[in-house]
Each structure stands twice: as structure tokens, then as C-alpha cells.
């Protein structure tokens, strides 16, 4: 049986722990801005200028997109690998530019971001706009800069003819929101590509995950 003094001491310790945990909770919820901002960003503003509120805000340069063929199932000469990488890069760039980097911010309409997709793929992508574009932050965004852009390709090339490819993408964007805390958006996963009737590479599927953290933190 414990003594009253022990019980008082224990209660104090418990109170301290609870206090610390509550403090930790409030710190986690307030430090670094608003974790809910991405999910709840209001897409109410129309097309403004790129950093329209203050045209003098410098827009940092994005790193270039690096695309490499790393796996080939079948046969594909080195020159053809380079050609595939270059053409797929065009398609991925078109998507990333339209969904994140280009457009006049603050921006609310991202539905036209999927020109690099197959028609059916674009339809599916429009149901996943918050995952695939900067839409959750668009209304409060001043400018977006890509700080990491890589795509490693696994190519299916039976008998030397390219039939499809999977791009393992790793994309990191720094989203400048003016006076509000900036966000680091990380999009990682797979883009599935094939060529359409005209020979153009198009995205027909995706398997991606996305996180957004305050600038300065890793996700």
C-alpha cells in the first residue's frame, strides 16, 4: 500500500508528464505553420499573375529534370535508350510544368494539367487533382520551384521495339507562399507510360504518394 506522500509525488509527476505531452502536442500543431493548409486550401481565386500580388518576388530557378533508363526488359541499344529518355522527359516535363511549375499563381484551376496523359488517364487524374497537382496550396502560392526532379525508367522493349515504360519519379517542390510559411511538397512513386498512335509518349497510369511539410523539414 502506498503512502499519501508517495501518491502526491506520483500525481505531480503524472501532471508534469501530461503537461509536457500537451505542450508537445500544441508545439507540434502550431510550429511550422498549418499542417492542414494543404488539405483545406481554398481554391477561390482565379488566375492571377505568377507571384501576382508582388511582381518583384524573385522566382528561383528549378533544377532540371533528370531522366535515365536504368532497366530494360528486352533489348535496347544505348542510342535508343537516350532517345527514349529524352522523349519520356518531354512528357513528364509537360505534366510537371502544367501541374506545379507553370500557370499564374495564385491559381485555383488545375484541371488542365493532364495534357501529357492518355485521354482515359486524364479523366482518372482529374479525380485525383489534390494528389497530382499543386491545387491544395494553389490559392496561397506565390511561386513554385522544383528542387529535385528525377525519373528512372524501366523500359519494356521486346525485340528492340519499345512498348512501354515505368518511370520511378522523385519530385520535390518548394512552394513559396509569401508571408505564410513555405511548404516542401514531395511527390514520389511511379508513372506508367506508353506511346499513343502518333508515337508520342503519354502517361496512362500512376501510383504516387505525396506529402507536404514546412520548408526546411524533410518529408
Amino acid at each position: 500500500m502506498s503512502r499519501p506522500h508517495d501518491r502526491r509525488t506520483r500525481r505531480r509527476v503524472v501532471a508534469s508528464v501530461l503537461g509536457l505531452l500537451l505542450a508537445a502536442g500544441s508545439t507540434a500543431c502550431t510550429r511550422g505553420g498549418d499542417p492542414a493548409a494543404e488539405a483545406s486550401a481554398d481554391a477561390s481565386t482565379g488566375a492571377g499573375g505568377r507571384a501576382s500580388g508582388s511582381p518583384s518576388v524573385p522566382v528561383p530557378r528549378s533544377v532540371p529534370l533528370r531522366v535515365e533508363v536504368t532497366h530494360v526488359a528486352g533489348e535496347l541499344p544505348v542510342a535508343d535508350r537516350r532517345r527514349v529518355a529524352s522523349r519520356v522527359a518531354r512528357t513528364i516535363s509537360a505534366y510537371v510544368d502544367a501541374a506545379f511549375l507553370e500557370g499564374r499563381y495564385p491559381r485555383s484551376d488545375f484541371t488542365a494539367s493532364f495534357g501529357a496523359f492518355t485521354p482515359g488517364g486524364a479523366g482518372q487524374a482529374r479525380a485525383d487533382v489534390p494528389l497530382l497537382t499543386n491545387q491544395p496550396l494553389g490559392a496561397s502560392t506565390r511561386a513554385v520551384q522544383a528542387t529535385r526532379r528525377t525519373a528512372y525508367l524501366s523500359v519494356l522493349a521486346p525485340k528492340g521495339k519499345v512498348a512501354g515504360a515505368t518511370a520511378a519519379v522523385d519530385l520535390v517542390f518548394r512552394v513559396d507562399r509569401g508571408s505564410r510559411p513555405g511548404r516542401r511538397v514531395h511527390l514520389k512513386g511511379r508513372l506508367l507510360l506508353t506511346r499513343d498512335r502518333t508515337g508520342r509518349w503519354a502517361i496512362f497510369g500512376y501510383d504516387l504518394n505525396r506529402s507536404a511539410t514546412p520548408v526546411g523539414e524533410a518529408s
Binding site: T27, G32, A39, G121, L131, F204, L208, N209, T213, G216
Partner: peptide, 23 residues
Amino acid sequence: LPPSAVRQSDIALVRVRTGQAVD
């Protein structure tokens, strides 16, 4: 726990959106 308000936290709880679709 961070000892002061200016220190970046060592832990984070981040919401991750995921999605998958194939046309």
C-alpha cells in the same frame, strides 16, 4: 521535445496522400 520554440522538431507526423489509377 524541443527545448525552445526556435528549434526544429526531430519528429513529425505528416499526412501522406496516395493514389493509384491505370487507364
